[in-house]
Design a protein around this nucleic acid. Sequence first.
DNA 1: ATTAGCACTCTTATATGCGGAGTGCTAAAA
DNA 2: TTTTAGCACTCCGCATATAAGAGTGCTAAT
Lengths: 345, 345
Amino acid sequence: MEIELSNRAKTVLFTIITDFIRTGDPVGSRTISKRGALDVSPATIRNIMADLEEIGLLVQPHTSAGRVPTERAYRFYVDSLVKVSDLTTSEERMIEKNLNPPSREFKDVVRETSRVLSEMSRCVSMVSTPGFSETQFKYIDFVRLSENRILAILVSKTGMIYNKLIRVEEEFNQEKLAWMSRYLNDILSELTLKDVRRKIIQEMRSEKNLYDNILMNALKMSRNLFDAEIIDDELFIEGSTYIFDYPEFTEISRMKEIFKTFENKNNLIKLLDKVTRADGVKVYIGSETNIQTMRDCTLVASPYRKEGNILGSIGVIGPTRMDYAKVIPIVDFTAHLITRLLDEE
Amino acid sequence: MEIELSNRAKTVLFTIITDFIRTGDPVGSRTISKRGALDVSPATIRNIMADLEEIGLLVQPHTSAGRVPTERAYRFYVDSLVKVSDLTTSEERMIEKNLNPPSREFKDVVRETSRVLSEMSRCVSMVSTPGFSETQFKYIDFVRLSENRILAILVSKTGMIYNKLIRVEEEFNQEKLAWMSRYLNDILSELTLKDVRRKIIQEMRSEKNLYDNILMNALKMSRNLFDAEIIDDELFIEGSTYIFDYPEFTEISRMKEIFKTFENKNNLIKLLDKVTRADGVKVYIGSETNIQTMRDCTLVASPYRKEGNILGSIGVIGPTRMDYAKVIPIVDFTAHLITRLLDEE
DNA sequence: ATTAGCACTCTTATATGCGGAGTGCTAAAA
DNA sequence: TTTTAGCACTCCGCATATAAGAGTGCTAAT
């Protein structure tokens, strides 16, 4: 629903939110009046505040405290009030300087970017990496571990590695496996996963006529491999200890709740997935995350790409009272940074 | 240094420790007297307690509180007093029933075992997995990612996968790479890492005479690969939220410290490494861990094996006031369980 | 429409008092 | 000589009382 506010009301709301973000304390009419952005008396401010409270943008923790912004207020703030400016080049330089991935490998780059992101934003940061089904096929290989156990190794175009144990009845020696993988690599090269599935079925039909047992086996094995939603995406979480710095989470039971959410990951993966399907920085405030335990928390996230394709999302979780004006551009920059790093190769 | 105690003193110490483990409250003379294990008056107990305090086995948090065991006391308790009994079969059954790894793959088994361990012990659990250098060579493969980037994939005999990005000057097509890996698999099969290194150097000498450029390249690449202490071991941590259940860690700053230690992992890896070199269950109490932030914490850990070879360690971290009599056998059983699961294949 | 003034509410910090738990010491009992 | 009862003492934890401060809503005057 639309929110219509007079300029004055906007100014008051803006002042309250920025002040509250800075200090964490409820903001009173006196304080706002003194800020001088409006040059009216506290009493006038109080009237405006009462109005804002009626619309559901402010609440008081108790009768004689100042006002605190509601979720709706943050939403409105993020949508219409906040001024996000780009980072200065010196800030960008700073971030890049802090970034020292141990290698140029996909996972290392991703994790290190996440680390820096959490450091810069002083929030918990998360990165989702694509499940195999999201990426393009690059390479498959089979390794014989024992008589009836074969390790399938899949490499995506992005250089990520997925693997899966396969149990087989009959025995394959490594040579046969090499043959199988060569064949599969040949026919599946560069396909997206959807196409891989189709291709396999199609090949199975035609191979049936050739009666080539080994290749048929290769196809069967790979079909099982690609059929199961085997290889789920991962989620890296960095800087979870920043939670301890926020007074709103000091209660032990609350902390436990939050850390449980981090430990479980499922809900967060789902949430980040939504971002991955979107474009640009997205902000989920409190209940918008659809995660009960994430009340009073905000997710700011953005997808990242490689060679134009979205691979996953990177973002931060912090209190709803986070410094949006700073965090949003940082997330944005970091998402671009990771994209650049991945493409640079 | 040796600790000599009369039977009576031992009984008192034992009672205090078990009581403190159970409740977390300092134990007074009255309580012990009432327990009835000794049937003397509180006054007598007080005398004994004063003695124990003098030796450094007990302390009082303040003048008029009961006594609390010191680190030394726990050490003595673990070494000489505690009665660890094996788990009952029903308990063992219970653990096994809870264990449902999503696959029989090494990492999944390890992680799931860790999860169950933390659940049973109500402590944070950790598992270290072997770095590549600890295991035996099984398989190597190269995947061409782009003109000058090659992905090396290593599989250990245990079925663990390690990978490393290699940058090359000249271009190799996938066929050449296949050739190279075939060759390497041939000569390195089943060797331990130490032998792999030697073998590579040895081969380089002899190949030099053959002037086979591709194979020489293969050797060079693999030497880089195996020379660098590239592929470090990992550490899985599960159930870190159990920390919140212990009153001794309620202070925020303390919690932050502990979680930082979990996040960093390095120190913990080092610590678990010590265990890996040992045999059977090891207990590190407080400062014995050599980690400053782990004061008031105890690590109980044991190595696990596959086919007789030690791969890593599994263990739990909890307050020094943990239930050793329960935790020690649980860790022991779990280590054997994981060993069994890995061998069962 | 705005604002000064004021009574009112609620929180937070500080002081105060008191019961309880546990001790150490002493002197008596075993 | 060892054990124990008795007692004075200490310190914590808890509840209660009190005061200061911050902020509000309302009213009446500007």
